[in-house]
Computed example of a mutant assay.
Amino acid sequence: MNDAAVLTAARPPTAPHLDLGRRGEQMAARYLQKQGFIVLSRNWRCREGELDLVVTDRNTLVVCEVKTRAGDRFGDPTEAVTPAKVARIRRITGQWLSAHCVNWCTVRFDVIAIVLAPPGAMCLRHYPGAF
């Protein structure tokens, strides 16, 4: 068996909800780029958690939480952005600013909610300044 086969065989399959989340983040990044934003970070991680997207329009730094659902069975995607999650995103944003030596800028927090249902259809809603 060659090295490539060993590496491929050792990689565990990805959970479907993680694939859905990645797809949603890709769609959100493309949407924001079409709106004129520049993507600075995707899935930026630190000890406390992760920022889905950090973008800029050259005037404002926008931290965007992306929530993707395969349907409405579990409610609207925005319902998952709880006050505790908002507080964590704000703390992580401070760490992103520090890690990237950004001393001062206007920061806005957005939510992008994506519902992919029925198959092949997509509904993307952008909530600027959502929290």
Score class of each variant (00 low, 15 high):
T68H: 00
V54S: 03
A29E: 00
R42I: 02
T68N: 01
A28I: 02
A4C: 12
T14I: 04
W44V: 10
V63A: 04
E79H: 14
L20V: 04
Q33T: 07
T78G: 13
D57V: 05
T82M: 08
D72F: 14
P83L: 10
L61W: 08
N59M: 12
T78C: 13
F74I: 06
E48I: 04
V86E: 12
G21I: 00
G49Q: 08
N103K: 15
A117P: 04
A4K: 14
H100M: 11
P77G: 06
L32M: 11
P83K: 11
A10C: 13
Q33W: 06
T56D: 09
I89M: 13
V39T: 06
N103G: 15
H17P: 04
E48P: 03
V55W: 01
A15G: 07
L51T: 03
T14S: 02
G49K: 11
I114T: 02
C123H: 15
A4E: 14
T56N: 11
T82Y: 07
W104A: 12
R22S: 02
R88F: 03
Q26T: 07
V54D: 01
L40G: 03
G129I: 13
W96T: 00
V86A: 10
R47M: 08
V63K: 01
A9L: 13
N103C: 15
T60C: 15
L51H: 03
V86P: 05
K85P: 01
N103Y: 15
I112V: 06
P13T: 05
F37W: 09
R69I: 02
V102F: 09
G120F: 06
A130N: 09
V63R: 00
K85A: 04
E50F: 12
L18R: 11
E25D: 03
T78W: 03
G120E: 08
R23H: 05
L40Q: 09
W104F: 12
T56P: 06
H126Y: 10
C105P: 08
L18Y: 10
A4N: 13
P12V: 03
A70N: 10
R30E: 05
V66D: 01
A99D: 15
N2R: 13
G71V: 14
T106L: 14
A121P: 03
N43T: 04
P16N: 07
V55T: 05
R11D: 01
P118H: 12
G120A: 09
A80T: 11
A70H: 10
A80I: 08
R108K: 14
A70E: 07
A10F: 09
R91W: 07
R45F: 04
A29D: 01
V111N: 03
N43E: 07
S41I: 01
R22I: 02
A4L: 14
L51P: 03
D110G: 04
E79K: 14
E25F: 00
R69W: 01
L116T: 03
E65D: 11
G24D: 01
G120Q: 09
I112D: 00
M122I: 08
Y127D: 05
G21D: 00
V63N: 02
A117Y: 07
Y127A: 06
A9K: 12
A9G: 10
A9F: 11
R125I: 08
R47G: 08
P13F: 06
P128I: 05
L32W: 00
A117N: 12
V55N: 03
R88A: 12
R88V: 07
Y31E: 03
A70K: 09
Q35D: 05
A113F: 02
A84I: 13
A5N: 14
